[in-house]
Structure formats: C-alpha cells, structure tokens
Design a protein around this nucleic acid. Structure first.
Lengths: 190, 190
DNA sequence: AATATTATTGACCAGTGTTCAATAAAGAAA
DNA sequence: TTTCTTTATTGAACACTGGTCAATAATATT
C-alpha cells in the first residue's frame, strides 16, 4: 500500500473545494469527474468520498456560496444610493443576467441541472433567491408585484441566461442584447 | 455465436426510431442508454451502431421531427381563421409553452442540452424555428418586430418552459401561470 | 508501548458510449 | 448447386463514469 500523504499537505474540505471550484468553473458539472479532481489534488478519488458523500454534495457546497453571492449582488444594487428607483430596477435585472453569464457553469447547477442527486441539495437556495428577487424588484418598482408577475419576470431573465449559457456566449458578447431584453421586460411591468 | 435475427423482424431505422422515441419521451436523454434501447428491441447494442453512428445521431433524428411539429403548430395557429389577430398572438405564445411542456424530454434536447455531440447535429432546427416564430409573431402583431424584440420574446417563453421542464411539472399544473406569463409578455410588445 | 481513531488507498462494482473482429444470413454470380 | 460478396448482427473489449469498502498507514489517546 502506498503511504498515506504527509499531514503537511493534508486533504481538507477547503483544499478540495478550492480545486474543485476552479476546475468546475472551466469544465462544468458533467465533464468534471471525481477522478480528475483527485488527480489534480494528487490523491485517490476514494479520498474525496471521505470528505464528501458524493459528487452532488461537493458541488452543492460550491454552489451554496454562489447563491449568497447572487443575493448579495441584488442587495448591493438595492442599497446603492447613487441610483434612482428607475435605475435600480434596470440594474437589478441587468446584473442578474450578468451574474448568470459570468458564472455559467455555476448557474447551470444552480438553476438548470435536472439530476436528482443535485436537486436533492438545492432546496432553499433557488427559492430564497427568487423571493429576495421579488421583494427587491417590488421595492424598486414602488408598486407591489403579484407573485405571478415576479415569476414571469424572473423566468424571462432566466430564459435569456439559459440560452446563452447553452451557447457558451460571454456576457461581453451580448451586453447590448441584455440591455434591450431588460428594457423589454420593464415595459411589461408598467 | 448466437444466430442472427430472422429477416421478418429485421432491425430497421424505423423500428429503432419508434422504440427509441417512446423510451426517450419517458426517460430522457441522459437516462436512456443504448443498451436499454437494444434490450427492448431484443438486439445487441452494437447493432444500433450499424444504423446510427452514435447516440446523438439517433436522438437527433427523433428531434428533427419535433422541430417540424413545432413549426407546424405555429403555422396552424397562424392560419386559424377563426382567431382574431389579437387571439393569434396570444395562442402563438401559449401554444409554444404547451408544446415545450408536453414534450419535455424532447424540448430538452432541442433547446437545452449542452452536450457537444448533440449540438453538432442541431444546426438549422432551432434557428429555423426562431425565424418562423419571429415572422409569425410579427404578422399577428401587425407591426414588424425588431430582431432584438423577437429574441426577448422567445427567450422569455423559453425561460418559462425551461424552468418547468427542470421541475418536471405538467402543463396542466401551470396552465394559469402560462396564461398570465403570455399576457405579461404581450404587454411588453405594445 | 499498546490501543483507538482518523485519513487514505486502490481494487472492485455496475454502469456508460463506442469500436471492431468474427460471423451468420441473404443475395448474386458461376 | 456451389462459390463469392455483401449486409446485418453479435458480443468481447476499451476507456470512461460515480460510488463502495476492506485494508492499512499515520496520528492521537490511553
């Protein structure tokens, strides 16, 4: 049996997470195998399973962070006192798109993947973000939105992000289109 | 070596397609393996590769059909003389959603799957449908739509379908929501 | 020093898409 | 009818995947 690694370069959750996060951002969920991660970490794939029950759990820990980042981003726009209410509304939607397209592989796991193992970990994340989204948009609009309208608005943004995630387009490439999409949606709100 | 099957129950593209289409509708792309199809067909999985280069090619042949069905559905609404222009617009959007949600696994491959093998077969399909969609909506709206607005409208519907595909919700379950989503989007068009 | 705990390994399992030599069946040519 | 060719089929093999687990090495505790 090969000797166990020295405690200097101990395999911790954090070490795994750092490596996995980076690989994941460039390779995506399906393409990134536990063995590939283990390879970069210079450990056996079995070792990862000591720290994480399975692939879905490992990836959820990465994603959980992203939901917080997304929520924070929405709140940041909301609390930016240099923006008018009108501008806030625009930027809320615009920033959502930007977030999705600059973290495409993350967005995929957050909102797109059908895999049951993955979904079992995604309980509050999406709902919480959706709720915050609704509150924040309502407040920027200065008019309470119906749940249905929040849904429509959110899903319309979601469709935009989804489409360009699939096409692996960068945000820079569709900036103008994103802008016009947001303007399009704001018209529906009035 | 096991004797080759009698020519009576010959393995043809059509036989494969029929079985694959059905299994695929209930199991989805990722979960349906070539071996499972072969199993139902009572042949070896290798035999399928004689007729189809790979899994993606087989599934594309199924999907190609679906694009035609979708296009036809849009045209049917367009040519329904019992509908006013206003109603046509509504039904175009509504029927798009209905189509997506009643053929979820098909929709997934048509517009959602990231897999490079699959995408290599999906060249004209989506673009052609999008173009038709734009023409047909413009005509129902009695006002030419900018490419950007067609995109926005389409992606907003797409987001709706995508979301409920992921959640594996039936169309019946979100009929009212679909209706309000369509109304929401029509507001943006005016 | 002996023992218990923790972390790691790698063989193994069942599954995947795909390839391909072997071969059986059917059809054409002699 | 016999030979040859073409076509369709099989199933072993390959390189992967996520996941499990007994063996064991390193570390902590007694």
């Amino acid at each position: 049996m090969t000797p166990r690694r020295a405690s200097q370069n101990e395999l911790t959750k954090n070490v795994i997470l750092d490596v996995a996060r980076e690989l994941f951002a460039s390779e995506g969920y399906a393409s990134l195998s536990m063995r590939k991660i283990a390879n970069v970490l210079q450990c056996s794939h079995g070792a990862i399973y000591y720290h994480y029950k399975n692939k879905a759990e490992l990836f959820y820990e990465i994603i959980a962070n992203d939901f917080e980042k997304l929520d924070q981003e929405l709140l940041d726009v909301m609390n930016d006192s240099s923006l008018t209410k009108e501008d806030k509304l625009f930027h809320l939607l615009y920033r959502y798109i930007k977030f999705g397209l600059t973290h495409q592989n993350h967005y995929e796991v957050m909102f797109l993947i059908k895999d049951d193992d993955v979904k079992s970990y995604l309980q509050e994340g999406p709902n919480k973000s959706l709720q915050l989204f609704g509150e924040v948009v309502s407040s920027a609009l200065m008019k309470p939105l119906s749940t249905k309208d929040v849904y429509s608005l959110f899903l319309s943004l979601h469709g935009f992000v989804t489409h360009f995630c699939r096409a692996e387009t960068t945000f820079e490439d569709i900036k103008e289109l994103a802008e016009s999409h947001v303007i399009f949606l704001i018209k529906a709100l009035k």
